[in-house]
Write a protein that binds this DNA or RNA. Structure first.
Length: 512
RNA sequence: GAGCCGGUAGCUCAGCUGGUAGAGCAACGGACUUUUAAUCCGUAGGUCCUGGGUUCGAUCCCCAGCCGGCUCACCA
């Protein structure tokens, strides 16, 4: 297969030829003087200061990068390399390089890493270019990258890519190749990284303490989801990969840290689609003495600031819509929104009526689901898709929120909000339940729901209850899905577009 | 999970209700001392996803399976 491939063979032969001529095809280092963008800026500065040499050149620079294109014209050749600063053109001349170094260029391939040295000049067509006086191979590529050909539309100035690397599965599986040939993909992940840095900066500036809590947990909790299970050999016990950070972070509030946050990986053993990956990144933050209204304000500030500092604007384009993160965000009651959408007093419906209405709205059987889950499904079907601009949905029914405090004005509701943007849930938050007796009852109700067939209900966590019994101050807590936020800010339609190595079936059988 | 679409050269794709495959780019050989989708001449490159079936003959038609994408539903 690969070993007999003529493309790979040709490159291995070149590798041998290089070695025979005494060239080291895998260098140890290269002393670079400029990144490509800095080199260009240096030339332009010298040019505008009228400090170019007689031939319109600068002092020699040393740049290095991956070979992207090659246009040979006999005794000259043009090429582009790409480095962390972008692309820069190289101009090779036999008269400049000498017979042997010029002849050796024929052993280069697209994808090779090279370092070059030479003065900068501007070509006839106006492009700042290195006039190569010497070059060095830094790493030989033995496998061709799936480069497309590019041209710049002279009318619009847009970059048009011809053919290229577009098979989604191959791009995710070989993300290294995807990144290597798609600068715009690299930019998505730079944006994601900036976003996370801005979140840390925002919370750190408000005296939040970043902490790390267990990923391997003897009892999972903090969300309604099925966990991954694993086994610890020495302890001979079953462990779960966490589905949420929540219960451990609140233990830290009990311990006296007033403001804590964690940005970490959660794992849920559920389906994969364009908004779900089995492992995903969650931000959770908890603040003592705050309630959910305080947290709503904090979330508004956080998101507007993070949007502005990572994209340059509080108004973000997503899927053709303009999403405006300028505070304050819209607020609607869970029950009010549901009643407005259905025209019924949903809390007055008995179980059978509620089930029938939900089944009609969702279009599938809701057999065995408890009231809370029915309300949630109904809400998902009739309200969520309409929530395009950032909207806080507040005050959820108590059945849905086993970790949230009862609403101070209505005991059937809890002090909880979820933030929806572009029809998706981005954040989930409560006035955290800090009454250990109430918490025990809520857990017991969940256990009952589990016995009735709800396999996503919360298990009872005695240690967490013990922590509550030591006393937890009033606390506001928020969870924000980092991947989904990255999708919004980067305007990417699939969670796989913002996860470097999304979960895939292993590469076997007919795949690849 | 359901529906729709797809799997052909390294990459992107053509391939006519059936006669054992083509293009562009990439590769290889050659020409070319300011090009930029460079250009020009030539060469090579294939488990047509897998397994059955129909047929004289299947990339093409039928069945089953595997894999992927999109839409819908759901867990963040």
């Amino acid at each position: 297969m690969d070993e007999s491939n003529y493309l790979l063979r040709a490159r291995r032969e070149k590798l041998r030829a290089l070695e025979e001529r005494g060239l080291q095809p895998y260098a140890y280092r290269y002393e670079r003087s400029h990144r490509s963008d800095k080199a260009r800026a240096t030339f332009e500065a010298a040019e505008s200061a009228d400090e170019l040499g007689e031939e319109g050149t600068t002092e020699p620079v040393r740049v290095a990068g991956r070979l992207l294109s090659w246009r040979s014209h006999g005794k000259t050749a043009f090429a582009h390399i790409e480095d962390g600063g972008g692309r820069i053109q190289l101009y090779f001349r036999r008269n400049d390089l000498g017979e042997e170094p010029y002849a050796l260029l024929e052993l280069l391939d697209l994808g090779d890493w090279v370092g070059v040295e030479g003065p900068l000049f501007r070509t006839r067509t106006g492009e700042v270019t290195v006039r190569v006086a010497g070059w060095q191979l830094l790493s030989k590529a033995l496998r061709p990258l799936p480069f497309g050909k590019e041209e710049v539309d002279p009318e619009t100035g847009e970059r048009v890519v011809h053919s290229g690397f577009s098979d989604p599965q191959a791009r995710f599986r070989q993300r290294y190749a995807d990144l290597a040939v798609h600068p715009e993909v690299r930019e998505v992940f730079r944006l994601r990284s900036r976003m996370v840095s801005e979140i840390r900066r925002f919370l750190d500036a408000r005296d939040y303490l970043e902490v790390e809590t267990p990923v391997l947990q003897p009892i999972y909790g903090g969300a309604a989801a099925r966990p991954f299970t694993t086994h610890h050999n020495a302890l001979d016990m079953q462990l779960y990969l966490r589905i949420a950070d929540e219960l451990y972070l609140k233990r830290l509030i009990v311990g006296g840290f007033e403001r804590v946050y964690e940005i970490g990986r959660d794992f849920r053993n559920e389906g994969i689609d364009r908004s779900h990956n089995p492992e995903f990144t969650m931000l959770e933050f908890y603040e003592a003495f705050a309630d959910y209204r305080d947290m709503m304000q904090l979330v508004e500030e956080l998101l507007s600031e993070v949007a502005r500092r990572t994209t340059g604007s509080e108004v973000v384009r997503f899927d053709g819509e303009e999403i405006d993160f300028t505070p304050p965000f819209a607020r609607v009651g869970f029950v009010e929104a549901l009643e407005e959408a259905t025209g019924v007093r949903v809390l007055e419906l008995d179980d059978a009526e509620l089930r029938a209405r939900t089944e009609a709205a969702v279009g599938e059987s809701m057999k065995g689901l408890p009231r809370g889950r029915l309300l949630d499904k109904l809400f998902g079907a009739v309200v969520e898709p309409g929530l395009v601009q950032p909207t806080f949905v507040v005050d959820y029914p108590v059945e849905l929120s086993p970790l949230a405090k009862l609403h101070r004005d209505n005991p059937r509701l809890t002090e909880r909000f979820e933030l929806f943007v572009a029809g998706r849930e981005i954040a989930n938050a409560f006035s955290e339940l800090n009454d250990p007796l109430d918490q025990r009852q809520r857990f017991e109700a969940q256990v009952e729901a589990r016995q009735e067939g709800d396999d996503e209900s919360h298990p009872l966590d005695e240690d967490y209850l013990r922590a509550m019994e030591y006393g937890m101050p009033p606390t506001g807590g928020v969870g924000i899905g980092i991947d989904r936020l990255a999708m919004l800010l980067a305007d990417r339609p699939s969670i796989r577009d913002v996860i470097l190595f999304p979960t895939l079936r292993p590469e076997e059988g007919s795949a690849g």
